[in-house]
Amino acid sequence: MNASGTGKRVVEAAVSAGRALLHREGPPGAQRQTLTVARPVGNVLRACQDPQVLSTLLGDAGSVRETGPGRLEWDVAGWSGTTEVHAEPNRVVFTTAGEDPVEPLVVEAWPAPRWDGCEVVLRLAVPAAPGLLDGALAFTMVYRLRALLQTGEVPTLAANPSGRAGVGL
């Protein structure tokens, strides 16, 4: 084997390892959304552990409240449950208690290329809302997270003055 063949295999191995870290697959049915957020990894992961922030991200779809240190109670799209928060380097995992624990929400954040903030991967698997609702809710949550961290507010159409009144849509 020549030097260029060895170099090519080393690059392929590094790319595969990076993909495995950045794109871990979740449980079957989990919906994953990825977005770049112009904030440091630590800020994103701290925000994702705050029940007020999580409730804001869910909007009308649900709410989250703290029931004790590291324990959150969720009411999302017809599903209610309690999770424990596990903060790990570059990720926050919410795990249900019981014999067969489930991870309804996992948030990962990694430095983005060229120092442009971080890449956020949000995996959502709400037991009562599989499929399309999970995908829409995952996108809504990560989109609102980016807006909240970058601008200090989440996008909304409520109470916005506009010329839409009486249009008949």
Rank of each mutant, 00 (worst) to 15 (best):
L57A: 09
L124H: 09
T95H: 10
E108G: 10
D75I: 08
V106P: 07
A87C: 08
D60W: 03
T83C: 04
P111V: 00
W79A: 03
T140M: 13
A109K: 00
E12S: 12
G152E: 02
L132D: 12
V106A: 04
P69W: 06
G42F: 14
V37K: 00
M141F: 01
V121M: 12
E66R: 06
Y143W: 10
R123A: 08
T151D: 09
L35W: 13
V106D: 00
S63Q: 13
T96K: 01
K8L: 12
L105G: 01
G26K: 02
G42H: 13
L54Q: 08
G26F: 00
A20D: 14
V93N: 05
Q31P: 05
L22I: 07
V93A: 03
A30K: 04
V11C: 07
L72Q: 06
L21G: 04
R146M: 10
A147Q: 01
Q52T: 11
P69G: 10
A13Y: 10
L22V: 02
C48K: 02
T151G: 01
L132K: 15
S63A: 05
G62K: 01
L57Y: 02
R9L: 15
A136D: 14
V15D: 05
C118P: 11
V92M: 09
V85N: 06
R91Y: 03
L145K: 00
V15G: 06
P111F: 07
V154C: 04
T83L: 11
P101Y: 03
L133Y: 15
T67L: 09
T67F: 05
T83F: 07
D100E: 15
L54C: 10
S80F: 06
L132N: 14
A112T: 02
E12I: 13
V107A: 02
G131I: 08
D60M: 11
T82K: 02
R114Q: 15
E108C: 11
A109P: 08
P51S: 07
A20N: 15
R46E: 14
T151N: 04
P69N: 09
N90V: 03
R24S: 13
N43R: 14
E25S: 03
T140I: 08
G78R: 00
R114T: 07
G98H: 14
V85G: 01
L132M: 12
G59S: 03
V15E: 06
L137G: 00
E119C: 12
C118Q: 06
Q33K: 11
R146I: 05
E108M: 13
Q52S: 13
T96Y: 13
Q49F: 02
G152P: 07
R19Y: 14
E88F: 01
R46S: 14
N90S: 07
R9V: 09
G81H: 10
Q52K: 12
G68R: 08
A125R: 04
F94T: 01
L57Q: 11
L72D: 10
V92E: 02
V37D: 09
T96S: 12
Q150V: 04
E66H: 09
L122K: 11
L132Y: 10
V102F: 11
T56H: 03
V142E: 06
E119I: 15
R19N: 13
G117E: 04
E88C: 01
G68T: 09
C48D: 04
A97C: 15
L148A: 03
L149C: 05
